[in-house]
Design a protein around this nucleic acid. Structure first.
Length: 469
RNA sequence: CGGGGCGUAGCGCAGCUUGGUUAGCGCGCCUGCUUUGGGAGCAGGAGGUCCCGGGUUCGAAUCCCGGCGCCCCGACCA
């Protein structure tokens, strides 16, 4: 179906294939400052679709969007010991502005728990003000040592949610709800990426959190990618920023807070979870362009038919674009395949003479001919089928490449090609250290039934270990 | 910060070992014609501080010294 040789084959050099896709699908470019990225229109359109889908789900849980400053006083970071220790190495700090040395250095936010904590303290007086459910869409800066477009850039885009609650149970319940109803729902239904849900072991926890939930997806090379996280911050940040409320009984009490985020890393995850040797494969529910109507030749009759088909698709709610026949057909087809557009409608004079057009699926290359007037009624079902097929395929890869093992040595062997699952009790701190010698980490802890534990101290937990991005 | 590699046209590279006409090639770009059912062909054309600074030399992309930058592999991480 595809013309190879346009991209480096995955089997030959997976990282190179990734870079080829990012470049040739016109997703992003490296920025002039090391580690920064320029997100090109097609890449940004995909991010905007992610934003729209996640934003709607976030609002459904009751959170509201707000915006906090990019610049944070450095002193804020010192108020929470673990937080400052965790983030110090990767902070970008402004010490000079307005033509002079600053009295207090300013940190370019790497995340906003601190500044938002400061304002939560201001805004929360009474139990009636709780829960306070905030989210912001923003850029953050973390001075990464080894940047890679989308996966790890010095500046990236994300949403970060921050909430304050009256009780531990309410906070933990909300963090879990976000994890399941926002992240997992988005990942499964829109991104079509199945994940292992669980909690991080203490060594991998967010700096300052008491518990970190994660969704670990599998890339096509068998490595793991953390797709989203949801943290229970306990009372650590509330204590550091004096986030108190007066209870119904008139007592002063500390809040319980959470934070949770998903970033442009998801674009990298999309590429590596679904892409093949012909390029990107974008699940229909995510795709900014679900159908491209390709004119085989640049002729009035053909172009007219393209416009007609596109109008009908648009009317039935399909995101569609027309590619008029300028330039060679093969070239244009290849370009759309690299961009991963789910369905290509080929409109050419030969078929048109019989009143037909061809529909081609990006995921499996299947081609069918339908009447010109039947396109709009055929496409929605086809898109739905693709969406579930792409998810099923990814789930099969995830399950087929997850190996149940008994000990750390076997896990290390299994992690060369996929994930290993073994009893958490068989790992421990010593096991983690041993795994690390092969760049393998504990991705998450789960209950035997795959559900999310409340704490890493629960009995009988399994852990998933793998190499990761 | 440790280990490797690379800076020559927009991108990817050759040339450097052994200094010497006008610094090449592929892709891309522009113009024209023919094309268009799987990365089209032909013809013409535009495009260069050879990373920067210094040195050696009659002469430096090439040799020497110093600097800067980038990429890949590790440690850190959404």
């Amino acid at each position: 179906m595809a013309s190879p040789s346009v991209l480096t084959p995955q089997a030959e050099d997976f990282p190179r294939w990734y870079q080829d896709v990012v470049a040739k699908a016109e997703m992003a470019d490296n920025g002039p400052v090391r580690g920064t990225m320029v997100i090109r229109p097609y890449g940004y359109a995909i991010w905007e679709r992610m934003q729209a889908e996640m934003d709607a789900r976030i609002k459904e849980t009751g959170a509201q969007n707000a915006y906090f400053p990019l610049f944070i006083p450095e002193s804020y970071f010192h108020r929470e010991a673990e937080h400052v220790e965790g983030f110090s190495p990767e902070l970008a700090v402004v010490t000079f502005a307005g033509g002079e040395e600053l009295a207090e250095p300013i940190v370019v936010r790497p995340t906003s728990e601190t500044v938002i904590g400061e304002f939560m303290a201001k805004w929360i007086q009474s139990y009636r003000d709780l829960p306070l459910l905030l989210n912001q869409w923003s850029n953050v800066v973390r001075w990464e040592l080894r940047p890679r477009l989308f996966l790890r850039s010095s500046e990236f885009l994300w949403q970060e949610g921050h909430t304050a609650h009256a009780t531990y149970a309410d906070a933990a319940g909300y963090a879990l709800r976000i994890h399941l109803e926002v992240y997992n729902d988005f990942l499964e239904k829109v991104l079509a990426v199945p994940t292992y849900l669980g909690i991080k072991p203490p060594s991998e926890r967010f700096a300052g959190a008491i518990n970190t939930m994660t969704a670990e997806g599998m890339m096509r090379d068998g490595k793991a990618l953390q797709m989203a996280t949801s943290h229970e911050l306990g009372q650590n940040f509330a204590k550091a920023f004096d986030v108190y409320y007066q209870s119904e009984e008139g007592q002063a009490a500390l809040c319980w807070t959470t934070s949770w985020g998903a970033s442009t890393r998801l674009v990298g995850g999309l590429i590596m979870a679904h892409g093949d040797d012909a390029g990107l494969v974008v699940p229909p529910n995510l795709a900014p362009i679900q159908v491209v109507v390709v004119a085989v030749r640049d002729e009035p009759e053909v172009n007219g038919a393209c416009e007609k088909v596109a109008a009908a698709l648009k009317a039935s709610g399909v995101r569609v674009q027309v590619d008029r026949g300028r330039g060679s057909f093969g070239r244009r087809v290849t370009d759309w395949e690299i961009k991963g557009v789910p369905i290509r409608v080929e409109v050419g004079p030969r078929d048109l003479a019989q009143g037909l057009v061809s529909l081609v699926r990006r995921d499996d290359g299947a081609k069918v001919q339908v009447g010109v007037d039947a396109v709009a009624s055929e496409v929605p079902g086809m898109l739905a089928a693709m969406q579930s097929d792409i998810f099923d395929g990814a789930r099969k890869r995830l399950l087929d490449s997850t190996f149940d093992v008994a000990n750390v040595a076997e896990a290390m062997e299994a992690a060369t090609t996929g994930f290993a699952r073994l009893p958490w009790s068989a790992v421990g701190e010593a096991g983690e250290a041993q795994l690390k010698t092969e760049a393998i980490t504990v991705r998450c802890l789960q209950r035997k039934d795959g559900s999310i534990p409340v704490s890493d101290t629960e009995d009988g937990l399994d852990c998933i270990v793998a190499k990761s991005y």
